[in-house]
Amino acid sequence: MFEIRIHSRGGQGGVTAARLLALAAIHDGKYATAAPFYGAERRGAPIVSFVRIDDKPIRVYSQIKKPDMVVVLDASVMDVVDVLQGLKSGGKVLVNSQQKKEFGGYLSSNVDLTGIALKEKLVVSGNPILNTPVIGALAKMGVVSVDSAKKAIREMFSDERNVTVAEAAYKEMSA
């Protein structure tokens, strides 16, 4: 089982990203679950959502404590939350950022999702859309296939620019 924890702020699309990723994994012929962890927190507060991907049906409902991968949609949450908590040694970290940041003992990558969304003017009520480009980046990292990623995005969004940004993120991903 491959377990991913996504960090974002309320309203940034972290839950939708989890859902897209799970849907793409299902299109790859795998089993997947996506779970938002709800708190009493409101808009703008740091939140986490979880994705599990496996070859067998998933029977675990408890929270992910030792993820294989951590995705940070908003780098500013790293100031208030320990995003590496429980991450398996050698695990992967993907950060939405222009600069690469090294995390000792982990495989770090970065991509400027915000920049990619802004370039396509993919902005909803002032917030650049991050949940579709991040799927492109995750496809580059081999979490899901490119075809399934696009298929999932097209099922959930009618605006084709969502696919464009995913492709852009795929191309721009560092390593």
């Binding site: 989890a18 859902r19 996506a34 779970a35 409902y61």
Partner: peptide, 12 residues
């Protein structure tokens, strides 16, 4: 069905 654990989880 269990609140959140099932009501809010996404599965196939």
């Amino acid at each position: 069905l269990d609140g959140f654990l099932l009501s809010h989880i996404m599965q196939p």
